[in-house]
Amino acid sequence: MAHAIPNNDFYPKVDVLSRIGNWFSATIVSIAENNPRMRRVHTLQAMSDAQLAALGIKRDDIVHLVFRDVYYT
C-alpha cells in the first residue's frame, strides 16, 4: 500500500525584500514605542481631564510638553 503525502504549502511565499522591509518597519515602530518620551505621552493621554488639570496640563499640550526640548524651541 502506498501512502501519498500532499505537498501543501501552509505558509505563503514572501520575497526577501518584503520580509526585510517588514522587519525594518517593525523594528522602527518598536524603537519608537519604547522611547521613554512616548511612554510619557501615553501615560498622560490615559489620564482624565481632571487629573491633567490638577497637574496644570491641557490635553492639547501633552506632546508639546513632553517633546518641548527636542522639537520646540
Rank of each mutant, 00 (worst) to 15 (best):
V63S: 12
Q51E: 14
R59V: 07
A50M: 02
K58T: 01
H3I: 14
F67M: 12
G56V: 05
A32H: 01
L52N: 10
Q45Y: 08
P12G: 14
D15Q: 09
D69F: 00
L52E: 03
A53M: 11
V14N: 03
I31P: 12
I57P: 11
P36R: 02
R68Q: 15
V70E: 05
F24A: 07
G56F: 11
R39D: 01
M1Y: 10
S48Y: 02
L65I: 13
I5Y: 04
K13C: 05
D49A: 02
F24W: 05
F67N: 14
Q51P: 00
F67S: 06
V41R: 03
D9T: 05
I62M: 12
S30Q: 01
I20K: 13
E33F: 02
K58D: 06
M38D: 09
H42C: 13
M1F: 13
R19Y: 00
A2E: 09
G56M: 00
W23S: 11
Q51H: 03
R59D: 06
I5S: 10
S18T: 15
R19E: 09
I5H: 08
N35K: 12
P36E: 06
T27P: 03
D69P: 04
R68G: 02
L55D: 09
D15A: 05
N35V: 10
K58I: 00
H3N: 07
R68S: 14
V63Q: 15
Y72P: 10
I20S: 05
L65V: 08
N7Y: 06
N34I: 02
H3K: 13
L65A: 07
V41Y: 03
S18I: 15
N22P: 02
V16R: 01
D69I: 04
Q51R: 11
R59C: 11
Y72F: 14
V14A: 01
I20L: 13
A46V: 01
Y71E: 01
H42R: 15
Y11D: 01
L55T: 04
Y71F: 08
S30M: 04
